[in-house]
Nucleic acid binder design. Structure first.
Ligand SMILES: [Mn+2]
Ligand SMILES: [Mn+2]
Ligand SMILES: [Zn+2]
Ligand SMILES: [Zn+2]
Lengths: 158, 158
DNA sequence: TGAAAAAATGCAACTCGGTTGCAAAAATGC
DNA sequence: GCATTTTTGCAACCGAGTTGCATTTTTTCA
């Protein structure tokens, strides 16, 4: 009696791709797998390293193209950190959501929760489309590391 | 009878530099002059072009270093646009202010006015420092250009 | 089926914003 | 003056992202 196995990340990734009716290619599946497993947004570099570490290195350009495609499909979105590097994460259901960038480790998180749409007054003739909000500060990991001295330091996650 | 001449941008720039008690170098003065005259934030490239056009080309590295220095002094601040290019503008007195990035021409403006502090809930352990807000949409110039057809098109300002 | 068309991949060379190292030239301190 | 610090200039470099083009894979459809 096999208990119904929990869906693997590979399954989840494949399902996401089927849902948007496009070809399920190994590259797309693997990128989605990595993003499903991530707790923070991932840079191109960190994705490439993670893939290489798992024994299936990506071609650089293919990875860029897969990320562009996933973004175009609305499965993934990206934010540029203050280091001008784009970081990618799964599009979460909250249509508009804010981001958090840790000024210590540089990791970037999607925040969930209501963001009070700031009532900003625009100059005459300006039309607003979308508002991006990024909170800067210390993430939980870095706060803990600073509080508990000589603990094992958090790594930047590139 | 000379009427008291209005302070030139050069004067204004020099005064700003004196106020923060640092050496007034020609490069710093010229960068500040350009920023004083700008109606939107300027990229490194546009500053370099503007300087070259006025007959006093900057060395690339010197310009980067002056911008870093001015930013460190708090006289100038920079924002990275969605094209991952930093754009610089004079620090305006409003401590926290939002920005506007035009999705048509790419120009970036500092908005003035109260930005309703969005009540964002952070995950446990996260500490907020500063909140960056960027509004995306069409600037006045681009809206006008779209409305009045075949008008002279606004240039991107790089 | 099995060719033809379309989409995805791999590789090299390239662009471009930004940095680093180091030496020459000003500016500053005494 | 002369030593020390700061600023400038140049060249080489770095890393994120793009482009062109040839090869492979997948899809379409007669
Ligand atoms: Mn997000
Ligand atoms: Mn601003
Ligand atoms: Zn952190
Ligand atoms: Zn515009």
């Amino acid at each position: 009696m096999q208990a119904a196995p929990a869906p693997t990340r590979h399954d989840q990734a494949t399902r996401l791709l089927h849902q948007c009716g496009a070809t399920v290619t190994p590259a797309r599946v693997r990128v989605l797998q990595l993003l499903l497993a991530a707790d923070a947004a991932m840079s191109h570099q960190s994705l490439q390293q993670a893939a290489a570490a798992s024994g299936h290195p990506f071609d650089k350009v293919t990875l860029y193209r897969v990320l562009d495609w996933l973004t175009g499909q609305g499965l993934v979105h990206s934010v540029a950190g203050h280091d001008r590097v784009r970081r990618f994460s799964l599009m979460n259901p909250h249509h508009a959501h804010a981001h958090f960038e840790c000024s210590v480790c540089g990791r970037l998180f999607c925040l969930r929760g209501s963001l009070a749409s700031a009532a900003l007054e625009l100059p005459p003739g300006f039309a607003s489309d979308r508002v991006d909000i990024t909170v800067h500060g210390r993430c939980a990991g870095c706060t803990a590391a600073a509080t508990a001295p000589r603990s094992r330091g958090k790594d930047p996650g590139v």
